[in-house]
Computed example of a mutant assay.
Amino acid sequence: MKTPIIVLTGFLGSGKTTLMQYLLHEFPDKKVAVLVNDFGEVPVDAALLSGRGIPDDMLYEVNGGSIFCACLKDNFVLGLKALTECSPDLILVEASGMADPSGIGPMIRNAGLGDACELMCTLCVFDAIKSLKLAQNLATIERQVANAHYILLNKTDLATSGEMEAATAYIRKINSRAVIFPTRKCRFNVDLLKKEMESPFAMMPSLNTSDNRPDAFTVESINGSVDAFLEALNREEDLLRVKGCLTENGRHYYISDTGAEIEKREEAENFTPVVVITMQDKGEAVRQHLADAGFLAA
């Protein structure tokens, strides 16, 4: 029997890792393997999931770009092969926020994995506050929506009615076939995933190339308070995503942007550096702004 694959897509900060954690909770009787694709060199999402009890042999990391880009496609295939050898009941793939999932089905078949696993469906998390604004300049978001079977219109508790209506209209314009779930923290009826899927969508050429990569850099520690650092980040217009841990006065905090703001929660340990992702060719400028403000070493 082929192992079904569920692919999670959505732009940076939309809620994919939250969705991953929810799905893991909703399949308690299944042996679930996870492939995590972080755009940055530091595997922040994998560190989060590893800390929640996933065995090492059931968790595979691919970092430093998109798994659907030619530069990492081989790593993606190797990861799927390694996970199928563990005989899981289900494989969850969390693609990076910049991943264009066009053509993933043929990619699996052409890699010789067609007898071991198959694409069950693609879930796209669409940030009701931020994704529509970013879609005007980032074609990747349109591809994520166009190639989704299910779309989670997320952060409904934070979005205005106008933002919800505009986001829904955009999604319907791009993809009239997908089922849309308005969600808060990616909660929806998971039983629907167990139903037979429609025939695959027509695939488009992938946009994942080295020419459209955003910039990314890591922050191990800062000078000053975490709150002041977050305020400085909020002022950066070219910021796409920030996530990871910082320590202040012996207390550890995980920070992550929600679209409306950058949230902070206390953790028992500092388990991963902060990854800052910006628009293409803007990373050095953002880093310099933070250095000029005294948060980073010049």
Rank of each mutant, 00 (worst) to 15 (best):
V125C: 08
D100T: 12
R177I: 02
V219T: 09
A47S: 12
V62K: 01
P214N: 15
Y150R: 08
D45G: 07
S14V: 12
F39A: 06
D211Q: 02
I5Y: 05
P43A: 09
C117R: 08
G294N: 03
Q280Y: 09
L132H: 07
L233A: 06
N249K: 14
S256D: 01
H25A: 13
H149N: 11
I277A: 14
A135Y: 03
P55K: 14
L72M: 13
K133M: 10
N75Q: 12
P55Y: 12
G15H: 01
V276R: 02
L113R: 05
R241S: 12
C71Y: 08
E266A: 06
L192K: 03
S96G: 15
F229N: 02
R235L: 14
L113M: 12
K130E: 12
D89Q: 05
K130T: 10
N189R: 04
L113P: 03
L152M: 13
T209L: 06
A99Q: 04
V242I: 12
M120W: 04
L207H: 09
K173P: 03
E267N: 10
G53Q: 10
S210E: 11
A169L: 12
F181Y: 13
E85T: 06
R52M: 13
I151R: 10
V125S: 09
F271T: 03
L193Y: 05
S96M: 13
A146L: 14
D38R: 01
D89F: 10
F271L: 00
Q288W: 13
